[in-house]
């Protein structure tokens, strides 16, 4: 299928735009973009950049008017969640969601489902097509090409506008995706105090703490520490999994870890199939032993 032009729709995050920049140029070189931003220029390999500085929900009709002129629409992140399904339906587009791999020549899009236990292959057979990419699965292609943003009015009546009445920044204290050593804890840790111990051992090892969803759900540690399909994707050399069973949704976030060490009281725990070193033990007893030995080695 010949793609004459493509439209990128996202916010102004460098990574998200970079990933869309990379994928869109595999289809064609005639790219425009829509960004949700308040910047006056954006670095992207595109001819034209339309801008909105409102929420995507307020701009959906204007976006549809612009989008109908393109063969392929590529989107991701929160903006993709807002506009993907709505545009596909309104503009009668073929569509694929949650794409984590693409066979470009065949127009085949791969989406992992069942918590990463199965891969679905979808073929797009007609244009226009809308493609929603999963974040962090594609190379982020940086650009030095600065394009002025042409701001567009959202065109909704005052009565219908969704307004932001408060914005609360979540202070990011860790960058799990970049850490070399991560000490993760799960439901088996049992308490907030347990996580304080894990943070201590992480520090001793020169790493950071992380967690499974069950631990985050229990409020033992905040969401920014969650590892897995709906949390961070690690690229660490070493990952300690203390009291984590190894659900595939958790394993999805440690796919790229070089050396996994699992500590679990249940010798049948699935995490042991993924780990390089397996230790059947109570996490706390093993942490104590590890601290002793690290102190003996490092003084």
């Amino acid at each position: 299928m010949k793609v004459n032009n493509a439209l990128i729709i996202s916010d102004d995050s460098k990574d998200r735009l970079g990933e869309l920049n990379f994928v869109s140029h595999k289809f064609c070189n005639n790219i425009d973009a829509i960004v949700f931003s308040n910047k006056s220029e954006i670095e992207i390999d595109a001819n034209k950049v339309f801008g909105f500085n409102t929420l995507p929900v307020n701009a959906i009709d204007r976006i549809a008017q612009i989008a109908k002129n393109y063969d392929v629409i590529l989107t991701n992140g929160i903006v993709g969640a807002y506009v993907g399904g709505i545009l596909a339906y309104k503009l009668n587009m073929s569509c694929v969601f949650g794409v984590n791999e693409i066979k470009y020549d065949d127009f085949i899009f791969i989406h992992s489902a069942y918590g990463d236990k199965a891969l679905f292959e979808y073929k797009i057979e007609r244009l226009p097509a809308l493609i929603v990419l999963k974040e962090k699965y594609f190379e982020a292609l940086a650009s030095t090409n600065k394009v002025n943003v042409e701001y567009v009015e959202a065109d909704v009546s005052k009565q219908d506008t969704v307004t932001v009445i408060k914005e609360e920044k979540i202070e990011k204290t860790v960058d799990l995706g970049k850490a070399k050593i991560v000490v993760g804890g799960g439901r088996g840790i049992g308490s907030k105090e347990g996580f304080a111990i894990l943070e201590k051992i992480a520090k001793k090892l020169g790493g950071v703490a992380g967690a499974s969803r069950a631990a985050v759900d229990n409020n033992w540690i905040s969401y920014q520490y969650q590892i897995g399909q709906s949390g961070a994707m690690l690229s660490a050399d070493v990952y300690f999994a203390f009291g984590i069973s190894g659900a595939t949704q958790h394993l999805a976030g440690i796919k790229n870890v070089k050396c996994v060490i699992a500590i679990n009281t249940d010798e049948q725990a699935p995490i042991f199939k993924r780990a390089r070193y397996n230790i059947v033990a109570d996490w706390k007893e093993f942490v104590n032993a590890l601290i002793n030995q690290l102190e003996a080695v490092n003084g």
């Binding site: 073929s94 569509c95 992992s112 199965a118 979808y122 042991f272």
Partner: peptide
Amino acid sequence: DWAREMDVKIPTYEYVN
């Protein structure tokens, strides 16, 4: 006709334990 489902596969991963 949003897309054609071509195949569903179970990915395999091999690890040394």
